[in-house]
């Protein structure tokens, strides 16, 4: 056989192209870090000045030109908890159903289609719908309840999808092993499948909390109070919320010079809360992973 004639120095060119590509990919990947640092840096630069113990623990005062943002922090935490109560059980159960019970029939296709469409609905539309259904029709008024229900609906698709995908990835050998011992399907899910899916489910839940904490549109007409310095005492109370407070201060303020720093401070607190949640999610994930080892 004739031997192949390879172009000269081809190997060198390949290696060169590879190195260039590597750096390009790396550069663009690092871009994401740049964006995050830019935003963080900007917010810290503008907002760190107003941070103080009083800022975190006092209500706004003097027409929101001084004082703190405590009611908004509490309100946002309430809404996160409320939406979790709404979305987590429904979402996790739907996700389990989609992965474990439904066969490939039309029910699953239909639910998946609906889930995907729901996650594409703009959040302001959720707000409108929540107002019509919860605030007006069910007569909950502007309240933490109405806001939580609206935010819960908003985060359902994410919870359903992450649960479903977490469980789908668990090998069938685990299910078969359990069923072969006489366990029922429910026992199999409860004792083997859910614990194995937990690390990823938790991650999805926490992501949804992070998303909820930052949403303004869904609570605009369902819950958020422009100014409500006392703390809410029941789920039928309105409350302040960090993203909405930020919005109010920056758009309909009365004294821009005094309020702008407060707005940046509010943004900083919001971002820090979300960062803390994300760190927490990592820790929880590791905790559940370790339990499986």
């Amino acid at each position: 056989m004739k031997s192949v004639e390879y172009p000269s120095r081809y190997a060198v060119r390949k290696r060169y192209a590879q190195r260039v590509a590597f750096w390009l990919f790396r550069f663009f990947s690092l871009f994401i870090a740049f964006i995050l640092f830019a935003i963080l840096g900007f917010i810290i630069y503008k907002g760190a000045g107003v941070l103080s113990w009083d800022f975190l623990t006092k209500a706004p005062s003097d027409g929101m030109t001084s004082g703190g943002i405590f009611p908004a922090i509490v309100g946002t935490l309430c809404l996160m908890a409320g939406s979790a109560v709404v979305a987590f059980p429904i979402g996790i159960m739907s996700g389990i159903y989609m992965s474990e019970f439904a066969s490939k029939g039309w029910v699953v296709k239909f639910i998946r289609l609906m889930t995907n469409n729901l996650s594409g609905v703009p959040s302001i539309v959720f707000g409108l719908f929540g107002m019509a259904l919860f605030v007006k029709y069910l007569n909950f008024g502007d309240s933490i309840l109405a806001g939580s229900l609206t935010l819960g609906m908003l985060s359902l698709p994410l919870v359903i999808r992450t649960t479903e995908e977490a469980l789908k990835d668990i090998p069938d050998s685990m299910r078969e092993g359990s069923l072969a011992l006489g366990a029922s399907k429910l026992q199999t899910i409860w004792r083997v499948i859910l614990p194995m899916g937990m690390p990823r489910i938790i991650t999805g839940l926490i992501l949804s909390l992070g998303r909820v904490s930052g949403e303004t549109a869904p609570i605009l007409f369902t819950c958020a109070a422009y100014f409500f310095p006392q703390l809410p005492t029941s789920i039928f109370d309105q409350c302040m919320a960090l993203p909405y407070h930020l919005y109010v201060l920056s758009t309909s303020g009365t004294d821009m010079a005094a309020q702008q720093p407060i707005a940046y401070g509010t943004a900083l607190v919001l971002i820090v809360i979300i960062l803390i949640i994300n760190l927490l999610s990592g820790a929880l994930r590791r905790y559940f992973e370790n339990r499986l080892k």
Binding site: M174, E176, A180, R191, V192, L292
Partner: peptide, 10 residues
Amino acid sequence: MVFQRPNPFP
């Protein structure tokens, strides 16, 4: 039943 690949639970 014992399966081809060991499948202990976590």
